[in-house]
Simulated assay, not measured.
Amino acid sequence: MTRVGFVGVGAIGLPMAKHLVTAGFEVVAFDASPARLDEAAAAGMLPATSAGETAKDADAVLVMVATPQQLHEAVLGDGGVAEGIAAGTCCVIMSTVGVDGVHAVADALAERGIGVLDVPVTGGVARAETGTLTLLAGGDLDLLARHTNLLTPMGRIVLCGPAVGDGQAVKLVNQLLCSVHLAAAAEALAFAEALGLDPDTVLEIVKDGAAGSWMLSDRGPRMLAEDPPVRSAVDIFVKDATLVAQAAGVAGFDAPLLTAAASRFRAAAAAGLGRADDSRVITTYRAAGPGPGTGRAGADDAASNLENDR
């Protein structure tokens, strides 16, 4: 039986690891949360006391943590993967950590003779549970080919490029779109409420039309729920939007829609909702109230500007 280490069995990592168990892999799991480790053990995994322990005698180690800092600590910190992994073993980084974040870890592991695949995922908890994630793969093609059977139980592999960092770069484009679509969905539903409409009815009307989006269909019902379960936290989008903004800055690229969306995620986090479901970003629109250029005068000014632009 192939032995696999899995670091980070959180909301997305746990169902991913479960699919590996179902596929016949022996999975040794570690997470900073004892409750998550208990869930992993109940699902047939062997709990480890550290990230490094998951790597001992493993044929590969998968890392699914939240931030670049957590990745560095999980792999290169005290008790990290690098302390237990053998030369010639592959480390698959499945976290969204940005190009610089994955390069820093990959370079350090390469000095130890450890290959790295850069495979961030997209699809959220829903697709992690069904094993239909999109795996954005970057890295050596031969190394990827040797680990295809490890990755396919979790979803569909899409080749982003032959270099470590290519998967992260494509994921940043993905997260720009996700950030904007999520904020737009919240703004639209809050706008429906402000117009005195039933937002549930509006959601049903628009979600499958030209204005629909996956984010609207997936997050919309949770935006309108009183206390939705946490499927993806606001803090994740604060982190991802920050990574996108940093990459845009390096590239000299102006991303005004991303900037506007990121401000909403930061506002939600500042309001104490960082660990709440990311659908709670809608509260920043509900709480905003009339701002500059709103109301009847603002509407008249906007109409006048439109006339002047024709």
Rank of each mutant, 00 (worst) to 15 (best):
G131F: 08
T132W: 00
L133W: 02
L133Y: 05
L133R: 05
T134V: 15
T134I: 15
T134M: 14
T134D: 14
T134N: 13
L135K: 02
L135Y: 01
L136Q: 06
L136G: 02
L136W: 00
L136S: 03
A137Q: 03
A137P: 08
A137T: 09
G138F: 01
G138D: 09
G138K: 01
G139Y: 06
D140I: 07
D140S: 09
D140E: 13
L141I: 11
L141V: 14
L141R: 15
L141C: 05
D142G: 13
D142N: 11
D142T: 14
L143K: 00
L143H: 03
L143T: 11
L144Q: 03
L144F: 02
A145W: 03
A145P: 07
A145S: 14
R146V: 08
R146D: 15
H147P: 03
H147Q: 05
T148W: 01
T148S: 08
N149H: 12
N149T: 15
N149S: 15
N149F: 03
L150P: 11
L150I: 06
L151F: 00
T152S: 13
T152Q: 11
P153L: 03
P153G: 02
G155F: 04
R156L: 13
R156D: 15
R156F: 08
I157A: 01
V158F: 01
C160L: 07
G161N: 10
G161I: 10
G161Q: 09
P162D: 15
P162F: 01
A163I: 06
A163W: 06
V164G: 05
G165D: 05
G165K: 02
G165M: 07
G167D: 03
G167T: 05
Q168R: 04
Q168W: 07
Q168C: 10
A169M: 14
A169D: 08
A169G: 11
K171W: 11
K171Y: 09
K171G: 11
K171E: 13
L172I: 04
L172A: 05
L172Y: 01
V173I: 07
V173E: 00
N174E: 09
N174Q: 08
N174I: 09
N174K: 01
N174A: 13
N174Y: 06
N174G: 09
Q175V: 08
L176D: 12
L177N: 13
L177R: 11
L177A: 14
L177G: 13
L177Q: 15
C178M: 12
C178H: 06
S179T: 12
S179Q: 12
S179R: 03
V180P: 04
H181S: 10
H181Y: 12
L182G: 12
A183N: 09
A183H: 08
A184W: 09
A184P: 12
A184S: 15
A184L: 13
A184Y: 06
A185D: 08
A186G: 13
A186S: 08
A186W: 04
